[in-house]
Amino acid sequence: MIIEHAFLVGFSKSFGLFYLVALSVAAVIYAMRPSNKKRFDEAAQSILRDEAGPWR
């Protein structure tokens, strides 16, 4: 067996934490970025203005 159990366990225990932090930061930046605000407000409002038909 080339892959050692201890190595895999160590990787599993540590890697997830970094991944968690990176992903959380990315998600928060995306959600909170001021330049995205308009797009999100527009999206939230847009479903309420259905034009009663597809554009194509």
Binding site: A27, F40, I47
Partner: peptide
């Protein structure tokens, strides 16, 4: 929910953050 209540979702940003949280 927004459609029936006739008002947009309270926080669209929160819905995105919770999306990634749940997925991960």
């Amino acid at each position: 929910l927004p459609m029936r209540a006739g008002r947009p979702i309270y926080s669209y940003r929160m819905s995105i953050i919770s999306f990634w949280g749940i997925t991960f």
